[in-house]
Design a protein around this nucleic acid. Structure first.
Lengths: 164, 164
DNA sequence: CAGTATCCAAGCAGATACTG
DNA sequence: CAGTATCTGCTTGGATACTG
């Protein structure tokens, strides 16, 4: 068995001192932060997105999610099942068949996830541009530093040569 | 230097075969998937949420985000800056002062993130209940298996005892 | 088919020490 | 103050082999 979050940290969002929007940021081991980590997980997002279309079996999921190992897929599915976001139904046939599908709660999660995905799609060009600009700036700075260093070395050599 | 995503995978969302909502799931190294991983990062979420309130300096962020090391905070800030989600302004004073704030794009991201946080807050009880139910079920199954195994052992002992 | 179990490598992340 | 640099443990995750 591979454990799986044995600690129950307790709430931290109802302390009453709500000075704006969030209180979940200060405390570590906040339950909201834990759930967020689970939900914002790389594979979880993909699984939920895929299952929103229709229920899928293990191998179908595995094929559709490029790059996932069966270990990670299994883990992800167990976690989502434990959190009540997906349901797992085993058909006692030979060979065995297992179907995964979103629970109602999982479906509501997908709605909010989709806004995140949509945001990403809409801004991917802007982000790519920002990265390119950042990298270009960093490169320019680095080259400037190298030129300066080279100039300093040359100067030092000249001084030494003139001094002898 | 600590590198920082040197590969540019190129788009994968405009293939045209859009049979529903998503195409970004199949291919690994999809740009959307990468951005999503960055954006859905544990610390990124917290930083963006905090900076939405007001701009903050390095140490203020560090104090408000419980559990982050300065290494991770620095990395997160650099990544977000590179992606054009936050801006970094250095005030040439002594001691130095650096302010971080959301860019307009970062602010739009916070809007979508907030829906995710809200979802989490609204469902944390339901999720906790689902976990408890799952764990209880798993425990029950395990105990049942142990009882069965014990019964089998007892039967075997009886058979042996009767056979001599 | 749908996993579980095990081993092992790479990278993530914390602690510490040092710098402009 | 706001970092960078380095060392290192530990988790994450892939590959492989095996089971019901």
């Amino acid at each position: 068995m591979e454990d799986g979050t044995s600690k129950f940290p307790g709430h931290c969002g109802d302390t009453g001192d709500d000075y704006g929007v969030l209180q979940w940021d200060t405390r570590e081991d906040c339950e909201v932060r834990q759930i967020l980590d689970r939900v914002a997980d790389k594979w979880s997002l993909l699984v939920i997105a895929l299952l929103d279309r229709r229920s899928l079996r293990f191998t179908e999921l595995r094929r559709q999610i490029d790059g996932v190992s069966q270990r990670m897929l299994t883990r992800t599915l167990r976690h989502l099942e434990r959190d009540g976001l997906i349901s797992r139904t085993v058909h006692p046939t030979v060979p065995p068949r297992v179907d995964y599908e979103l629970t109602p709660m999982g479906a509501t999660l997908h709605d909010t996830i989709r806004t995140l995905v949509t945001w990403t799609e809409e801004h991917q060009n802007e982000i790519a541009a920002a990265r390119a600009a950042y990298d270009a700036r960093a490169l320019a700075e680095q080259e400037a530093a190298e030129r300066e260093s080279a100039a300093r070395d040359a100067l030092a050599r000249d001084v030494l040569a003139g001094g002898r």
